[in-house]
């Protein structure tokens, strides 16, 4: 049977890999080139890269003269894809069809769409028709406000007027292939996954759901992996700071008879 996926999500800001906290504070983790190499070498199920640059300026602050400089996000993608023998998802700030096409052509298997799903639904729909549902991941960022899930766009700054049920219908109607469900409040806080909201979202959606935000240990992965129907568990920050955390987490999850690769 299909296995659960454990997915690192890496945030690129102005050509550097950063860690993030509640979508706001961004601390530099390292040079994109070195980090890409490290992640490509681990035996990972799938990788997600999100470009959160607002300035659209790239400088990988080379710390080694043998490593060439990265001047654009396209160059970053080419570099990532060259030695990435796993499914690769790429996104962040996508606003038009040519960008989607370009990312898929340069080695991404899927693209992540967020704001454009709401601001220009026709483009999202066209992308699904052209490239197939499996190539389009809907990114849903949310906060829990007075006990209710509220969705946000624009790096967590603009609230959307949809209930969670309405959002599920909207995503089905559009025909996206997968959902990346990220808790803004848990991002970078290490307080564990928001199991209640994740369970709710997974139960409402008929397509695969990957949950993100809040992991600090393999124990958190275990809790999220027990949500019935969940397809994948994603995390950003925690993979940066702990030695061999990816393979060690995998081994732990498998030892608990959870269905991972």
């Amino acid at each position: 049977m299909v296995k659960l996926r454990l997915i690192p999500v890496l945030y690129i800001k102005n050509g550097l890999i950063v860690r993030s906290e509640r979508f706001q504070e961004h601390k530099i983790i390292g040079n994109l080139i070195n980090e890409v190499r490290r992640y490509n070498q681990w035996d990972i199920d799938e990788l997600v890269y999100i470009d959160i640059s607002r300035e659209r300026v790239y400088d990988s602050r080379r710390d080694d003269h043998k490593i060439k400089r990265i001047s654009s996000i396209d160059e970053a993608l080419n570099l990532i894809a060259k030695e990435c023998f796993m499914p690769l998802t790429f996104g962040g700030g996508i606003r038009d069809l040519p960008t989607i096409k370009k990312y898929l052509k340069n080695g991404a298997d899927k693209v992540v769409l967020n704001k454009i799903l709401h601001s220009n639904k026709a483009i999202a729909k066209q992308a699904i028709e052209l490239f197939g549902a499996q190539a389009i991941v809907a990114s849903l960022d949310y906060r829990v406000i007075r006990g209710e899930i509220v969705f946000f766009v624009d790096n967590g700054t603009q609230a959307l007027p949809y209930s969670v049920e309405e959002m599920a219908d909207f995503i089905h109607d559009l025909g996206c292939g997968e959902v990346l469900f990220t808790s803004i409040d848990n991002d970078g806080m290490g307080g564990g996954y928001d199991i209640k909201s994740i369970s709710k979202m997974v139960s409402l959606l008929k397509i695969p759901v990957v949950a993100c935000g809040g992991a600090i240990s393999a124990f958190d992965f275990m809790e999220a992996a027990k949500v019935p129907g969940i397809s994948g568990i994603a995390a950003g920050n925690m993979f940066h700071f702990t030695e061999n955390i990816y393979p060690r987490s995998k081994a732990k999850l498998k030892s608990k008879q959870l269905h991972f690769r």
């Binding site: 299909v2 296995k3 499996q134 292939g177």
Partner: peptide
Amino acid sequence: LRVPHLGWNEARSPEGEFSEFSSDFYFV
């Protein structure tokens, strides 16, 4: 089950020279 069949799943080669290549592979 959900269609498409998407994700990592095991492919086994029953016997012979390819059995050592049985492993998880990525499907869509």
